[in-house]
Design a protein around this nucleic acid. Sequence first.
DNA 1: GCGCAGTTTCCTGGTT
DNA 2: GAACCAGGAAACTGCG
Length: 375
Amino acid sequence: MAAPSLSTVLTNANHTMYQSGMSDLLPPLHHGRMSPDSYMSNTSPIPEMWYDQLKPHYWTPDNVKNWICDNMDCTNFDARSVNLAYCDMDGPSLCLMTQQDMIGRFGPQLGAHLYNSLLKHKAKPDQEAELDETCQLLDNFLDELPLLSTLIIADSIKTTGLAPKRETSFYDNAYDLSHFSMGQLPPFTDPGYCSDQHSDSELSSSSNSGIFSRLHTPESTSGESDPEFSYPPIPRIKVEKEEEESCQRRPRGRPPKGSMEHSSLYSPKKSKHAPRGTHLWEFIRDILIHPEKNHGLLKWEDRREGVFKFLKSEAVAQMWGQKKKNSSMTYEKLSRAMRYYYKRGILERVDGRRLVYKFGKNASGWRLSELGLVM
DNA sequence: GCGCAGTTTCCTGGTT
DNA sequence: GAACCAGGAAACTGCG
């Protein structure tokens, strides 16, 4: 390897920056994305290649340095011939550079290589777009639905005997909680499930930050939050007949006991071209690798080993149910599906630990190397 | 229509 | 006692 010196220097410089907390000073990334280093905030070391997950325009100075290092490594370039100060720039500045600028700074060989690499990165489709559906689901789930707030209210009633005061007018339009006493809380309602009745505009009247600020997730970093959400099953109230009819759909799986008589609900109606969607383990993975959207639903126990834990098991199950248009999903059912992954090597057992699972050899897309190295 | 993968639902029994 | 785990069995959906 001809370029260890500068790589080492830059890596050490990065490390010093991170350790000194300077990364906190980096400007926030666009689109609400977190800086790559914060992906690793749980248990993992500093990422060196997270720039690969972002458009060059969003790269931080660290991302740029790592990118340069990688290119020097793969071209066996002698790092000693590069002025370190030339590497100090952020993504937007880098994107403004012409090929001549690159060659001027880094020489004809490395400069041309860097310029081509930059073009590739610019043209590369955003990998995170693949996660948009899950992200959107997370946003919708936390932003539009009363579930978690309902749980908070239920919890509040359970502990104090009093319903918490409502803070926004959102529920006044969509769910008037004052109509519900304990045991008659409004059901988890899926806007996609009944999209005819509830347009996004009707339901999305509050910002993420507003909802998030109202959510209390005190255990989100402790790993001991499930009891917080160990609420009794929320009874479903009857919905308007009109809504009911439009939302009627034969649920997947074995029909609930005693439901076979209701043939109107189970008339064969198949949409051959409905999208299959992601699998459960992919859904879980996508939540895990999007910690900025996670908000304490799941957390990595051991990022390198792929060990993770459900912090709000029922909430995740409800989200999964929302994705699959199945409002009766529970953690019990979700966990059964998870256990089927053991046989297939997608998950591995983690004995003796509740709510803890581990990605297996047949699970992909969660490893740092997969997320950061693939061009 | 068939077969299969991937759940979903129900269930029993065990553990924490 | 509740929540969770394990796994068998049956039923269902989506897709080739």
